[in-house]
Amino acid sequence: MSARAGLLVVEDLTVTLPTTRGPVDVVKGVSFTVDRDDTLGIVGESGSGKSMTSLAIMGLLPRGATATGSVRLDGEELLGRPDRELRRIRGDGISMVFQDPLSSLNPYYTVGLQIEEAYRAHRGGSRKAARAVAVEALTQVGIADAERRAGHYPHQFSGGQRQRVMIATALVCSPSLLIADEPTTALDVTVQAQILRLLAGLQERTGTGMLFITHDLAVVSSLARRILVMREGDPVEYGEAERIFSDPHHPYTRALLESVPRIDDDAEVWL
């Protein structure tokens, strides 16, 4: 297979959820590609199907949901794989960072132990070796005094630091693809800026492909090379970031861009 085949190739992905009023397609024939060292931004409002798309890729759809089409990582088909094999791929091949770090971390275990477990689940090895990897991972995401901090519990970290811990956990097995689902939405704007810089820096160092899911066009504008706009399960517009932002073709993309409040000098003044 050629090197430019794409790290993650999604073709005609359709996700169907059972409801009391019969099956409903929440993702309708979505196709896109993420390369190594590349970021794709999926942008949409609530109910657009952007999170269902990422859960389908991870094989984490809710019970009863079905996914059709094709999701290939490094040429390997993921849809229809048994859970046992998907567990191996999750964490090792694909990792995920969610919006709310507090609900993703176990409050009863130290963050060091949680990162160690993520590592040993895929790579095995001794506790001691895993601890060294965990401390290194925490250092990589900018947690100061990582050796001591590895022994602390999630509640002893601020919101931004917790998200750094989640990113360390996600990256500890050097996955080829990182899915970040609204990773900065719950954070203050100054902390958000730090986390975005961290993600961009880590990608530069490791070459991880990234799928960045957000409702915020401004957040994704600095990060993504390509953009997919979704609405009510439909892929609305897909293309290079510069083209989408400077020459949006679809009326919905235009409306979304219109709704971003401007903050710089030429913003319209109202009095």
Partner: peptide, 17 residues
């Protein structure tokens, strides 16, 4: 600091649009 941290759409792209 607060103003600098606001994510912005690339101003050149926004002007073109």
């Amino acid at each position: 600091t607060l103003l600098a941290a606001i994510p912005r759409i690339n101003p050149a792209w926004d002007r073109a649009r």
